[in-house]
Design a protein around this nucleic acid. Structure first.
Length: 128
DNA sequence: CTTCTGACA
DNA sequence: TGTCAGGA
């Protein structure tokens, strides 16, 4: 059982972050009076939350997944839901990747034109 | 001195 | 999320 400061340090986040996720309903630490107590469960859930965040999932998506973790002890729906979300995420990232590559090609093209112009022009636009 | 809630940036 | 206020 850890206090908020200890839990935050262990997880590599701030106390604010822990309170924030609690506010969003992703974790529900026990209370010792008004003080929050973080048990193994909250720590574990937080690690899953942080990983989900790293992978680009929204707090809502992470919450939905976590909620299933409680309702279905054997984790059947979870795996299926997770599979769909992951596939969705992969599709989304590939789409973004494509967009980035397109933008990159365009920028490189402009760069080439600019360099060509500088090489072929007797007088350059700026004097550096 | 640490934590809590709520508000604002 | 950071930070500050005002209490406990």
């Amino acid at each position: 059982m850890l206090g908020i400061q200890e839990a935050a340090t262990l997880l590599g986040v701030t106390m604010r972050t822990l309170r924030f996720y609690e506010d969003k309903g992703l974790i529900a630490p026990h209370r010792s009076g008004t003080m929050r107590i973080y048990s193994r469960r909250e720590i574990g859930r937080m690690q899953l939350i942080l990983r989900g965040k790293r992978l680009g999932f929204s707090i809502r998506e992470i919450k939905e997944f976590l909620d299933l973790y409680d309702v279905d002890p054997e984790h059947h729906e979870q795996v299926r839901a997770l599979k769909d979300k992951v596939a969705e995420r992969i599709t989304d990232l590939r789409k973004q990747k494509h967009a980035i590559e397109q933008t990159l090609d365009e920028l490189v093209s402009i760069e080439r034109q600019a360099l060509a112009w500088l090489d072929g022009s007797p007088i350059r636009p700026v004097d550096d």
